[in-house]
Nucleic acid binder design. Structure first.
Length: 255
DNA sequence: ATGGCCATGCACCATGGA
């Protein structure tokens, strides 16, 4: 199974690139989860995806956030957002596809550690912990993937000294990722290669991509059963060379 | 030394992103 995640920063703007990426993939993508589609469900371009053999489920929102699942296989048991957290933002869509439970997530950004938005991020993460545990208890094959907006450790940061304590790099945020890993998830990006710096996001400014000044904040966490079957993990950096790219690139695994 | 990008909404500047 080939699974991918991509924060597209507006599906309106990125639709043709996403369709092209899906149709040109050497190994066909079975499921792609999207974040920041910034689009209400009524405007979701189902027909464009149907035309290339995919069906979709979306949790949209105007201007901000919004997540979706694009799948070549039937999508069942869809859960919108966190079950125990009343969220005004569209951040999570879960479904079962080919006997695999998928959680496509757009974690809150947090803005800065002293902001109200950081408090919201912490509350959201607290609720995610419970939902994550329920998911692992219930499904042997599970994948939690998306834009986590958190670096696991300094290896995920282009300049850990400069960014020490900055948003996405605080110990409080990282503690939540370690809690998830302690629940039994495996970071698919750290199973095979555990020493190389590899990023999934680069700032639009300062020629950051050209200088490779980035962060790894998009993650694919897999249950033990899926981890044991993992064949490959790929960060699709070439998508950042598109004329009008997202600041994130797609990440995918094959198992 | 402030910031330099990109997308959205609403109107050409403000907000959010990370």
């Amino acid at each position: 199974m080939h699974l991918a995640t991509w924060n597209v920063n507006s599906l309106q703007i990125r639709l043709s690139q996403v369709l092209m990426w899906l149709t040109q993939s050497a190994v066909p993508i079975d499921v792609l989860v999207l974040q920041e589609i910034k689009m209400v469900d009524e405007k979701f371009p189902h027909a464009d995806f149907n035309q290339i053999g995919y069906q979709c489920a979306s949790l949209g929102q105007k201007s901000y956030n919004g997540v979706a699942i694009i799948s070549r296989h039937p999508i069942t048991d869809i859960q919108y957002n966190l079950p125990h957290y009343n969220d005004a933002s569209a951040r999570l869509i879960s479904a079962t596809i080919c006997d695999v439970r998928l959680l496509g997530a757009y974690f809150p950004n947090g803005q800065s550690p002293d902001s109200d938005k950081f408090q919201y991020k912490m509350q959201w993460l607290e609720s995610l912990q419970a939902y994550s545990q329920e998911t692992l208890d219930k499904y042997e094959q599970a994948v939690l993937l998306g834009d986590f907006n958190i670096t696991l450790d300094d290896l995920d940061v282009w300049d850990p000294v400069k960014l020490e304590g900055a948003i996405h790099c605080t110990q409080e945020e990282r503690a939540h990722l370690h809690r998830l890993l302690n629940q039994g998830w495996c970071d698919s990006g750290r199973i095979q290669d555990t020493s190389a710096k590899q990023f999934t996001w680069w700032d639009y400014r300062h020629w950051a991509f050209q200088k490779n000044l980035g962060l790894r904040i998009d993650h694919i966490y897999v249950s033990a059963r899926v981890a044991s079957q993992l064949k490959s993990y790929t960060i699709h950096k070439a998508e950042r060379k598109h004329p009008r790219p997202s600041d994130h690139v797609p990440v995918s695994i094959v198992f």
